[in-house]
Design a protein around this nucleic acid. Structure first.
Length: 212
DNA sequence: CAATAGATCATCT
DNA sequence: GATGATCTATTGC
């Protein structure tokens, strides 16, 4: 029986009760440091929206004025205002006329910086994610990419500005996670500053996005 | 399997 | 008026 026809692959990896019991919401102070540091620290953490949960396996850091690839590099605009605001908030932007991309604000209030969440390993609520991602042919395809992830988790531009330190949308640390190595590469799909090593992923993980 | 075109719109020039 | 932190279907080898 191959992976595609094996229905057991669609089963949740973790029960909601177990997640509630063994995880803690990351506080605002977790995000109030350099974006690059926050990006690395977010790997292995759990993104939770409603009853959906997934382990973050791939991220990218976007900085400020000295990072032309970052939206915040040109200063405060209506769109980028939130990036200069308090840490631990969501920044969701719309791109290519079709997709939303989910970021977490880093750095203390007043300083720009954020982390793009590029991929997650689904843990809870997989059947609901599947409904939101009818094109996914296996669990690995549910949230392996920035656009895929927001579709699977039901995150939209309307979530911009929302704190992830409480309520419906949170990021948590789960106790007892296996250790892993962090792989560093250039960021994907950008033109300016394309060479900077600001993409971080869990080495060897099957749930990271494809292309480079 | 790899390459590429098309979809489609908010944001900034 | 051009561009872009993407995904998918289709084409071609």
């Amino acid at each position: 029986m191959n992976a595609r026809s094996d229905s057991t692959q669609w089963r949740d990896r973790l029960s909601w009760a177990e997640l509630e019991d063994q995880s803690e919401i990351l506080p605002e102070s977790f995000y109030a440091r350099p974006a690059e540091e926050v990006a690395r620290a977010l790997l292995g953490k759990i993104l939770v929206h409603g009853r959906l949960a997934g382990r973050i396996v791939e991220v990218e850091a976007y900085l400020g004025a000295d990072d032309p690839a970052a939206h915040a590099s040109r200063g405060v605009t209506p769109r980028t205002r939130v990036i200069f605001g308090p840490p631990g908030r969501a920044y969701v932007f719309f791109i290519y006329g079709m997709y939303d991309c989910f970021n977490l604000i880093a750095e203390p209030e007043g300083a720009p910086g954020c982390v793009l969440i590029r991929a997650a390993e689904p843990l809870c609520g997989i059947s609901e994610m599947r409904l939101r991602r009818p094109n996914a042919r296996c669990v690995e395809e549910l949230a392996s990419g920035p656009g895929r992830l927001t579709m699977a988790f039901g995150i939209t531009r309307r979530d911009t500005g929302r704190p992830v330190t409480g309520g419906d949308l949170t990021v948590r640390s789960l106790s007892g996670g296996a250790s892993f190595e962090i792989e560093t590469t250039p960021r994907i799909g950008i033109r300016r500053s394309a060479e900077r090593p600001l993409r971080f992923l869990i080495a060897g993980n099957r749930f990271v996005s494809r292309r480079s």
